[in-house]
Nucleic acid binder design. Structure first.
Lengths: 200, 200
DNA sequence: ATTATCTATAGATCTATAGATAATGC
DNA sequence: ATTATCTATAGATCTATAGATAATGC
């Protein structure tokens, strides 16, 4: 039994990370506190030394959800990819069958949880707002370094279409319809919204 | 206490209609069977004479959810509206603040429930698939009577963007961001995807 | 002395069923 | 006789807390 400040911090992070996985996999109400602590290798009693309430855990888990875009941005920077190439990578990665089937593994929090977040308490929606603004900011930069209104609009439409498409692709049990949605939205976004290569 | 076949049918429909409202308002797990029956004016014990399980109720409630598009199509036909006008009415109606704030009142089932449906049992996702195909079919006809591949693609992109936009607009607690999403996606869809008026 | 974690449980759910009651419908 | 609805409850959750235990950290 570890009880140090360091081990407490490690426990806290492990609980949040496990919750971030499980919530995306099963929904915000899909795992109870006892089962979650068990997954981490602990028991239920210690939970409230870490969180004032279940809602606080949900908020922190949302803040900890990484949709994998940072990795794509970093890879693009490293490889010297152009904006259009990065845009394609973002769209294709988001609308991949692998992302559809594994929301828990660095899957987008809105694709996995948007409708439940919409009905959650203010604290949770505030955490989601931070993530949403961050994601729109990154995406806006893909369209235009100067972040013009047109770039912002393109980012908002792109992100809405991505979130809607993966949500619908998961909501149907018809595999061919699901694939049609993913492929069609990827192709259409690339045709209509792919940014122009830089001049010079 | 009514016990006739007719009154049973009326009860059944009332339970399904009430569930369709409550599920969109509070989520698929947001109301229990006892509370639902109470809302209808009955008690919990009769529920299982109507449904084999809770899941069966969820499926039937999804089938009963009407997103109000039929009314818009009928109004367009009556008023002799053109395809572009109907498209604008569909987009603006969907992305209206009123729709965002009242999912229970003829609100779109995917905008309200998509991420929860995606984690539901097959029976529920099958019911959702029927609604999705029907909606895509209607929307495709707005782009092209002959239902070309391009029209189908436009319908899928439009619907994905609508569902994503309203889901995100509800997920944030930042009113100005929420309004920005609704207005931006409406404007962008109309600019990029509004169908051409018929020639002749 | 403090506290991170443990075991155990109170109290509030929720789904589903059992058995009683009172109406329908042959 | 059948059955739609009722009251009541079994059994399985789930959140949160109480009190014990064993480690940290002054």
């Amino acid at each position: 039994m570890g009880h140090s400040q360091d081990s407490k911090r490690a426990t806290h992070e492990k609980v949040v990370a496990t919750a971030a996985r499980r919530f995306r996999e099963r929904g915000l109400g899909g795992i109870g506190i006892a089962d979650l602590m068990k997954d981490v290798g602990l028991t239920v009693g210690g939970f409230y030394k870490h969180f004032a309430s279940r809602g606080e855990l949900v908020s922190q888990a949302i803040e900890a959800m990484d949709n994998g875009w940072d990795a794509l941005f970093a890879a693009a920077a490293e490889r010297g990819q152009s904006k259009p190439q990065l845009f394609d990578a973002l769209v294709d990665g988001y609308l991949a069958t692998d992302h559809r089937d594994h929301p828990e593994a660095s899957g987008c929090l809105f694709g996995a949880l948007s409708t439940e977040i919409g009905r959650s308490e203010d604290e949770v929606r505030a955490a989601a707002t931070g993530k949403l603004q961050a994601m729109l900011g990154k995406l806006t930069a893909v369209f235009d370094d100067r972040r013009s209104p047109a770039a912002r609009a393109a980012a908002i439409l792109t992100y809405s279409a991505l979130v809607g498409a993966i949500s619908l692709a998961r909501a149907t049990n018809d595999e061919s319809l699901s694939q049609e949605i993913l492929a069609t939205v990827a192709k259409s976004l690339k045709r209509l919204l792919r940014p122009e290569p830089k001049h010079g």
